[in-house]
Design a protein around this nucleic acid. Structure first.
Lengths: 218, 218
DNA sequence: GTCTATACTGAGATAGAC
DNA sequence: GTCTATCTCAGTATAGAC
C-alpha cells in the first residue's frame, strides 16, 4: 500500500483526539486503518513518533499563520503591538484550524496538557516562540526575561485548558466553542502579562509582596 | 507485614512523583516496597485507586490549610479580601507542604497537568473550591459566574506549570524554588482575574476594542 | 482478613521470511 | 515494503494458604 503511512497518521490523529494518547493502542489504530502492526514500526519506529508526526503536520500550518498574524500586527502598530494583539496572533490560528478540523483542538489540548511533546516543542516550535517572546518583550519592557518566560509558561498551562473541551460545567457552565474560550483566555492573559513585575528573592516573605500589591484593587 | 498498605502508598507516592503515573508500574512499586503484587489489588482494587489515595492523604491537610488561610484573610479584610490574598490562601499551602515533602509538589503538578484526578476533584475538592469561588466572586463582583469559572479553570492550568519543576530553562531560566514560582503565579493570576470582563481596560486602543468584542458566527 | 502464587489478556516492540 | 510470529512487560483476576 503506497499510502500506508498516511492511513496510519489519519487514523491515529482521530483516535488520539477522541481517546487520548495512552488510551489509544497501536492495535486499535491498525485495525481501523486496515494495516499491519509491524508497518507502524517500520514507518515510524514507535508509538511516540506517530504522535509526533501527527502533531507536526497539523501544527506546521498553524505556526505559519501565527507568524503571519504577528507580522500583520507589528505592521499595524508600528513594530510594537499591544499584548492583546500579540496574544491573539498566537492563539487565534488555533481556532481557525479548528474550523477545518474540529478534532484538532482536542488533540492539541490533550498534547499540551499531558506534556507529551515537550521535546518537540524545543526543536520545532522554538523559532516561532522566539519571535513571540521578542514581541512580548518589546511590548512589556518592564518585565525581566525570566519573568516574561514564566508568564509564557503559565500561558501554555492556561491554553491547554481553553483548548480541550473537557466539560467542567460545575465550574464554567456550558463549554461554548473554541473561539469563545480563546477570547476569554486572551482577556485573562492580557491582564496577567500586564501585571507589575514581581521579583521576590527566595526566602522573602509573602506578606511583603501582599501589602505591596494590595492597593491595586480596582 | 504489619502495614503493607502504608508501604505501598509511601513507595507509590515517591515513584509517581519521580516518574509519573503511567511510567510507574505496579511491579516496580511492589518490588521497592517489598510486598506482593496481589496485595495492591487486595487493598486498593487497582492502580488508579492507589493514585487516588496517595493524592487524597496528601491533599487533605493542604485543603484544610487553604480554608484556614482564607478565614484569616476574610477576617483581616472585613469579609472581602483582595484577589491576591485569596489566591495566596489557595496557593501558598502547597509551598508549605512542599517544605515537609519535597516530592509532593512534583506529584501534584503531574496529577493536575495530566488530568488524572478530574473525578476526585469533584467529590473531594468541591467543598473547598466552592468557598474560594464565593470569595473570588465577592472580590470581583463585576465578573459573571461563567467568566469567573473559566478564569479559575485557566488558573488550574497555570498552576500545574508552576508546581511541577520541569526545567524549561530556554524559557524561564533557572527554575527557582516552589515558593518563588508560586509568588510569580500569584502576581500573574491577580492581573488576569482583575482584567475587565467584556470591555477592555482603560488606555487600550480602539482596534483592540473592536477585536475583543468581535463575535464570530459559524 | 491478609497475603502468596500463578495465570490471563492486551500492550509495544522486534526478527526474519517473503 | 509488508507481514507472521514471537518477545517482554503491563494491569488484572482468582484460587487458596495462613
Amino acid at each position: 500500500m503506497v499510502d500506508t503511512k498516511q492511513r496510519i497518521l489519519d487514523t491515529a490523529e482521530r483516535l488520539f483526539a477522541e481517546q487520548g494518547y495512552d488510551a489509544t493502542s497501536l492495535r486499535h489504530i491498525i485495525a481501523e486503518a486496515g494495516v499491519n502492526l509491524a508497518a507502524v514500526h517500520y514507518h515510524f519506529g514507535g508509538k511516540d513518533e506517530v504522535l509526533a508526526q501527527v502533531v507536526l503536520r497539523k501544527v506546521g500550518p498553524v505556526n505559519e499563520a501565527r507568524l503571519a498574524r504577528l507580522d500583520e500586527a507589528e505592521r499595524d502598530f508600528g513594530g510594537k503591538p499591544p499584548v492583546e494583539a500579540i496574544l491573539r496572533a498566537f492563539l487565534m490560528p488555533t481556532a481557525e484550524a479548528a474550523d477545518k478540523s474540529p478534532e484538532f483542538v482536542k488533540l492539541m489540548g490533550r498534547v499540551v496538557a499531558e506534556g507529551l511533546i515537550e521535546n518537540l516543542a524545543l526543536t520545532h516550535f522554538q523559532p516561532m516562540t522566539d519571535r513571540f517572546i521578542g514581541a512580548l518583550a518589546r511590548s512589556l519592557p518592564e518585565l525581566s526575561r525570566n519573568e516574561l518566560g514564566w508568564r509564557i509558561y503559565f500561558m501554555f498551562g492556561a491554553m491547554s485548558r481553553a483548548l480541550h473541551g473537557i466539560p467542567q460545567t460545575w465550574l464554567t457552565g456550558e463549554a461554548g466553542d473554541v473561539r469563545e474560550r480563546l477570547e476569554r483566555l486572551v482577556v485573562f492573559l492580557s491582564g496577567g502579562f500586564r501585571a507589575a513585575a514581581s521579583a521576590p528573592a527566595a526566602g522573602e516573605t509573602a506578606a511583603q509582596t501582599q501589602t505591596a500589591n494590595h492597593k491595586v484593587h480596582r
